[in-house]
């Protein structure tokens, strides 16, 4: 699978433009100084960007709100119309952390129970990853094994590495290979020198991380940390915004609501991103079983570092992207919490 190609940087836009008749091509682009994924139909792709958009590309498979189906009753007869989105899409520029996030979501939405909404979107989307030349400010993906370079444990069809004037392109799937074959004239075969250059960039990037987390020590600490005072201490400023869950590449909880139209004849079932940090989440017999914010923060950390690995063959549930720290109005810092756990004996 890992044949390597070379694409001249000046040819990237041409390559993506050629895909536009067949796909909605989605690229990172700046809007008023902020990076986000946008359709290339009305945004210029950012080729040399650092970091990642604040909202991860999970929303292309699991949107912030998604109309599942509409239903109506007329003269005693019920009708239901499902809204399965089968738009053909290519996303270029997905960072390894987010590729890993998508792989984690796959294991939730496509394993024991196949979610037809997620499945349709996922099946119709081609993922083009982009390795990181430098760590992002709050990131610790190298400690999680999810970045800064993608491996086979990240989901991708094509994987790009920025070598300066060129991209090294690794083929990760048949679908990715076909796209390259259709535009074969744009690509050359990569030399050993170019592959070595890529390895060198990876090595340097890994050395530049500000944060490192000892994953094994954290996992070991969690076996004894259930009653630790750290959960109350670290969660005391939480204002319950839900942001840490909303922007998490691996968070998948949702709530479902039926929205009636004004005449209450047609209703739409909509699912929305939900957050385990909210008091109203998963209420049973009128109460959230995790009554305090300390219990909810504990749930978030245990889920990523203990429950998800237990369910998915040891695969960690945190990508190390650092977004939850960045969006937190209460300055709850995941690397700080993991640092405390990592230091526990």
């Amino acid at each position: 699978m890992s044949e390597m190609k070379i694409l001249d940087k000046t040819k990237l836009v041409e390559f993506l433009e050629k895909l536009m008749p067949d796909f909605e091509v989605t690229v990172p682009s700046y809007n008023n100084g902020n990076l986000s994924f946008s359709s290339m139909a009305h945004a210029r792709p950012e080729i040399d960007f650092a970091g990642r958009p604040l909202v991860p590309p999970k929303e292309y498979f699991f949107p912030q709100q998604e109309e599942m189906f509409t239903f109506a009753t007329k003269e005693g007869k019920a009708t239901i119309k499902a809204h399965i989105n089968k738009d053909k899409r290519v996303i270029w520029g997905i960072r390894p952390c987010d590729l890993y996030g998508i792989k984690t979501l796959d294991s939730v939405f496509l394993s024991r129970y196949v979610d037809s909404y997620y499945h349709a979107r996922r099946e119709n989307t081609i993922l083009m990853g982009l390795n990181c030349n430098e760590p992002c400010e709050a990131g610790f993906c190298s400690s999680m094994g999810t970045g800064p370079f993608a491996t086979n444990s990240n989901a991708f069809d094509l994987l790009f590495t920025n070598l300066g004037n060129q991209f090294l392109v690794e083929i990760g799937s048949k679908a990715g290979e076909e796209l390259i074959e259709r535009r074969a004239n744009l690509f050359a075969t990569a030399s050993d020198e170019e592959k070595n250059k890529s390895n060198e960039i990876e090595k340097q990037c890994k050395q530049a991380f500000l944060y490192s987390v000892d994953q094994d020590r954290v996992k070991a600490a969690l076996t004894k940390a259930w009653d630790d005072p750290l959960w109350a201490e670290e969660s005391k400023n939480c204002i319950l915004c839900g942001g840490c869950n909303f922007i998490c590449p691996t968070c998948y909880c949702f709530n479902i609501e039926d929205i009636a139209d004004e005449h209450e004849q047609n209703s739409t079932r909509v699912r929305y991103w939900d957050s385990c940090q909210l008091g109203g989440y998963t209420q049973m017999a009128a109460e959230n079983t995790r009554k305090t914010q300390a219990e909810r923060l504990r749930q978030r950390i245990y889920d990523k570092f203990s429950y998800v690995p237990a369910r998915h063959n040891g695969a960690i549930g945190c990508t190390g992207c650092g977004r939850c720290t960045e969006v937190c109005p209460s300055e709850i810092n995941i690397t700080h919490i993991l640092g405390i756990l990592g230091r526990q004996k």
């Binding site: 902020n34 909202v55 912030q64 709100q65 915004c241 942001g243 960045e326």
Partner: peptide, 23 residues
């Protein structure tokens, strides 16, 4: 309106929002 994206470059919100801003 189907989504909200925080704005990291804004000096007050800094990419952060409360739940009213998000939801």
């Amino acid at each position: 309106v189907v989504a909200v994206y925080p704005c990291p470059s804004h000096p007050v919100s800094q990419g952060k929002l409360c739940i009213k801003g998000w939801r």
